[in-house]
Design a protein around this nucleic acid. Structure first.
Length: 475
RNA sequence: GUCCCCAUCGUCUAGCGGUUAGGACGUCACCCUUUCAAGGUGAAAACACGGGUUCGAUUCCCGUUGGGGACGCCA
């Protein structure tokens, strides 16, 4: 339909979670309408923009699968075009030089505040003759805002939002050093890039009134605005570092899958009936601006975690093995081919018990560890002297189990429990502890089948001999 | 302080004048069960308040209260 949107982050930090959602909404909107999704890096503040931040933003977008349809635009490379636009406005009498010093402006604001008046620039140089310019002061260029009437924005999310033009002060277009401001750059670039819909955070809503006037002054029709509500922290204030709100990379490091983060973010402020689990394709088919809510949402890590558990269970086993392999090896546990195979076979049982990749790693280790495996405290508690000798008695019968399969193992162990005159749980838990070093794991016969006879018997012998090292855990 | 926005279970939300106010996360029971998950069943849990409009308001309008955002020669 010829719609073009952009995601325009300023590279002063990582891609934070709110930015990720903005990018997602833009991307989905473009895909849904068969339009274009562009990326523009707003790096006009050279002091605060860093190469590392730019990289982090692209990494984050990449991880979430939000690719740009065209090479990214770097705003810093378009300064000449921004300056030219300002000159044109100056020539047309739509902008003017203002010789106020920063000190003078500070004073003006302080006074307005003291008198409980709005802290706006009063337009004192708007109609003043340039000959009155003080010597030695480099002027800024300001846009002449309309003095009366009102500016109405028909926001695709917020509806009609209106403000009296007298509330809008004459904003700075060019700084005293001649560099363009954000307000100018954004508008000039949006025009240049053919942006039809500006989808961005709520915090830009008041900017939109000013930018709307700037589009008009430049002789262009303003784009359609869509201001989506911000994501808030648990204290319901705008999400920021102090909430521990992090870059998407942090969520990746916490063991979340990109599809889970993406699904979670989508449902924050947008819904499609009662649907909770939404695939990318469904999202593209269903997403549109009219479904976006107007109120801010709080970030809920628990719900993200639950969603992640769902996607973990759905995930392909080989993919999960590939994802956790570096995490396992980072713990100095090397994975040989046999270990990788055991892990892959065991993944179906492991993944349905994990909520994050971190948990998945923790619960997977016993498949790839070398003997004797360490015992966590809860497992050690299950293995008293009496229990250990009971396990020892299990070794011989296990040597005869044929074939070595989940169902035959279960049948044998149940028979064994009966012979010993104990409840089945009395031998299952110690077996689990001895074979995995854990008190919690997938089904014990599944584990035995995957571990293999030799490994199982060896591990039981280790335990009988008390060879297992103890693990000191935080809990 | 000025301007703007918002308001359904604890949280995310469905609802677009007439519903037993639905779903999800979380919480609590019970079932399943070798542990833990998963799964199943069920429970507790919401329309901020006050005026209108209307035969009828969660839904439309106004106000109050509460929350948020913006007020830079930052982006």
């Amino acid at each position: 339909m010829g719609f073009t949107v952009r995601f325009a982050p300023s590279p002063t930090g990582f891609l934070h979670i709110g930015g990720a959602r903005t990018a997602l909404f833009n991307w989905l909107f473009a895909r849904h309408h068969d339009g274009r999704f562009l990326i523009r890096i707003e790096d006009t503040d050279r002091q605060r923009s860093t190469e590392a931040a730019i990289e982090a933003i692209f990494d984050g977008l990449d991880w979430l699968g939000l690719e740009s349809d065209e090479p990214p635009v770097f705003q810093s490379q378009r300064i000449d075009a921004h300056k030219a636009a300002a000159s044109r406005l100056l020539e047309e009498g739509k902008a003017y030089h203002c010789y106020c010093t920063p000190e003078e402006l500070d004073q003006m604001r302080a006074q307005a505040k003291a008198e409980k008046r709005p802290t706006r620039y009063d337009g004192r140089w708007r109609d003043r003759d340039p000959s009155e310019a003080p010597a030695g002061v480099d002027p800024v260029v300001r846009l002449k805002m309309p003095l009366d009437g009102e500016t109405v924005i028909d926001d695709a999310v917020q509806g009609a939002v209106r403000v009296a033009n007298k509330e809008l002060d004459d904003m700075v277009l060019l700084r005293a050093d001649g560099t363009p401001t954000y307000m100018l750059s954004v508008v000039v670039d949006d025009v240049e890039m053919g942006i039809t819909h500006v989808i961005r955070g709520d915090d830009h809503l008041t900017n939109a009134f000013r930018q709307n006037q700037l589009f008009l002054a430049l002789g262009h029709r303003p784009p359609r605005f869509a201001h989506i509500p911000l994501i808030h922290g648990p204290d319901s204030a705008k999400l920021s570092k102090r909430h521990g709100a992090l870059g998407v990379d942090a969520y990746r490091d916490m063991g979340f899958l990109p599809e889970a983060v993406s699904n979670y973010l989508l449902r924050l402020g947008w819904a499609h009936g009662d649907e909770e689990i939404i695939t990318r394709d469904q999202a593209i088919a269903w997403f549109d601006l009219d479904g976006v809510g107007r109120s801010a949402a709080r970030f809920d890590l628990q719900k993200l975690t639950a969603l992640n558990g769902h996607y973990l269970r759905e995930a392909d086993d080989a993919r999960l093995v590939a994802l956790i392999r570096p995490m396992i090896e980072a713990r100095d546990i090397m994975m040989d081919e046999a270990g990788r195979e055991r892990l892959t076979r065991g993944m179906a049982g492991l993944k349905q018990r994990a909520k994050t990749l971190i948990e998945l790693v923790e619960s997977s280790l016993f498949y790839v560890r070398s003997r004797p495996i360490p015992l966590e405290a809860k497992a050690a508690k299950l293995l008293g002297d009496e229990t250990r000798s009971m396990l020892e008695e299990l070794i011989e019968p296990l040597e005869r189990v044929e074939p070595w399969r989940e169902d035959t193992l279960e049948a044998h162990c149940r028979a064994e429990a009966e012979r010993l005159g104990v409840g089945f749980g009395k031998i299952a838990q110690p077996l689990r502890a001895a074979l995995t070093g854990l008190a919690v794991s997938p089904g014990i016969f599944e584990i035995m089948a995957i571990l293999g006879r030799d490994n199982v018997i060896a591990r039981l012998q280790d335990t009988a001999l008390g060879l297992n090292p103890m693990v000191i855990t935080g809990n």
